[in-house]
């Protein structure tokens, strides 16, 4: 391990302005790949016609069980009305909302968009509630086919772009480190010692891009919740914190994998004749 950290430190020290700029491009391209991937799960407008009556970001529709008596519905109404996260609650007949159902429903308005998820969790735990409907639960598959194709093409291009940028960034870095590599080859330093720190540089780029992606996703969620009227309908997946967390983690992993691949590509460049003692 001592050799790994020593060489990693030496590699980081030889990053110059040109290779540094290329590594920033690499990080941004990996970030783009992660962002395009995340878009599939976070962007999009819910389709009210398919999923039910239109509702705003801070609204929750509570579908009541047909077995509930009027008395129990009244009790439930009064109980929920007292909750801190609820700003308004109304009983609606299905016909009012154009639903072909016998049972009625409660339309609850949360005090803020950020409280919707907690409200859904609390409501789901109550007996007599057949289902809960909100913007976040309707998000699935809300992107149109042309948008999906565009995102897929963008994702493929950014992955290819990342690998091309990695090729140039590592070539530039290794040019500045070529004498060190030759000296190691002369000394009998094994390839298993020379290559891992180079792979680690790629992994570091992937980690940077992944962290950037997490910040961007949570920033988008914050903005979507703060300005629901302008943003939430375009990024309805951001309402659900579990979805945001999962997408962030998977996006981070994607960044890590792409960074690792970039590093492996970079390490393979050391096999080139330029870095041999006799070329």
């Amino acid at each position: 391990m001592t050799q790994f950290w020593f060489l990693l430190g030496n590699l980081l020290r030889v990053i110059g302005s040109r290779s540094g700029a290329l590594f920033i491009v690499l990080i941004l391209l990996i970030f783009s790949s992660g962002a395009l991937f995340s878009s599939f799960f976070l962007l999009g407008t819910p389709a009210p016609d398919d999923a039910g009556p239109s509702l705003s970001a801070d609204e929750v529709f509570v579908h009541l069980s047909p077995q509930l008596s009027q008395q129990k519905i009244n009790d439930l109404y009064l109980k929920i009305r007292e909750w801190e996260d609820v700003s308004q609650i109304n009983y609606r007949y299905p016909q009012e909302l154009g639903l072909e159902k016998a049972e009625g429903l409660l339309v609850i308005k949360a005090v803020s968009v950020a409280k919707v998820t907690e409200l859904i969790d609390a409501l789901s735990a109550i007996d007599g509630i057949a289902g809960v409907d909100s913007l976040s639960t309707r998000h699935a598959d809300s992107l149109s086919a042309p948008v999906k194709i565009g995102l897929l093409i963008g994702l493929a291009l950014s992955i290819v772009g990342s690998l091309i940028a990695a090729r140039y960034a590592f070539a530039e870095l290794l040019k500045a480190f070529s004498e060190e590599i030759r000296m190691m080859r002369l000394a009998g330093t094994a390839e298993q010692v020379i290559q891992p720190p180079i792979v680690a540089i790629g992994v570091l780029c992937g980690i940077s891009a992944g962290l950037l992606l997490i910040v961007a996703i949570y920033l988008l969620r914050f903005l979507a919740i703060t300005y629901p009227e302008t943003l939430l309908h375009a990024a309805s997946g951001c309402v659900n914190p579990a979805r945001v967390l999962t997408v962030s983690l998977v996006g981070f992993l994607l960044g890590l994998v792409l960074g690792g691949l970039a590093g492996v590509l970079g390490a393979s460049l050391t096999e080139s004749s330029k870095f041999q003692v006799y070329s």
Binding site: Q3, F6, L7, E180, M183, A187, G188
Partner: peptide, 18 residues
Amino acid sequence: PLPKTVLDNVIFKLRTLG
């Protein structure tokens, strides 16, 4: 030689050997 000090050139080889 490497673009380092004289001492660091020799140290570099030894450190990469473990």
